[in-house]
Nucleic acid binder design. Structure first.
Lengths: 111, 111
DNA sequence: TTGACACGCCTTGCGGTGCTAGGTATATTG
DNA sequence: CAATATACCTAGCACCGCAAGGCGTGTCAA
């Protein structure tokens, strides 16, 4: 179970990153992240959809409705702005990560 | 400049991690993190002190006033609860990190 | 054929909280 | 004696995460 702060911080970068694999729709994004994280990251729909809408508003994503076998799905695709945002998010993430790992390197009695 | 979400997610783990180096006081924690992050993580006092108080309330930290050369400083020290919290935070962080890196490994046109 | 469950999308509402802004006080430097 | 760095504190409220609830369709077992 992740802290809500960490969930908040990782949602946008994760969505952007998953979409580099190709366009995908909300419900499937949730499942893909569960899969990649070994069940440890389990988003609720109620938190994801608003984020997706916001990201589209920010021009990071574009969406398109498709119907397959009677099922209506809203597919999201990365836009240029989204790729730029991902590069930034990634850099920010690595900044924090390297700061943390510097401190973790010094052996302390932790697992 | 880090996103506020990432700042929120990393403050507690960073404080805990820095304190594994030994007891320290608020103002110095800010400077230590600036140093470790190469100037990229710059907390304001207004956001850090409430976090410190909250962490003490949670029994993660204990504090002690010391006066050195006329300067009154409130030193914080890790408690057992804090070490446990750190181990957890660390695990959570690595969960997200490994999920992200899985997606980043597949070469895409990003720096 | 009907009910239950999985799929798939959506939004309202408000409890909780992040952090700006502003405050106090002392040491140092020039 | 100003100005700056050090060092700590908190009130207040704008903001927002997300639980909860809603809608409709496909599928499958009983």
């Amino acid at each position: 179970m992740l802290s809500k702060e960490l969930v908040a911080a990782s949602t946008v970068p994760l969505v952007l990153s998953v979409l580099t694999e190709g366009e995908n729709y909300g419900y499937a994004l949730i499942q893909r992240v569960v899969e990649l994280s070994d069940g440890k990251i389990a988003w609720t729909e109620g938190m994801l959809y608003p984020v997706l809408h916001w990201m589209e508003e920010q021009k990071m994503l574009e969406s398109e409705w498709k119907t397959e076998g009677g099922r209506k799905r809203k597919y999201y695709r990365l836009r240029q702005e989204g790729r730029k945002a991902l590069a930034q998010e990634r850099q920010q993430w690595m900044t924090v990560h390297s700061t943390l790992t510097k401190l973790w390197k010094t052996k302390n009695a932790l697992t």
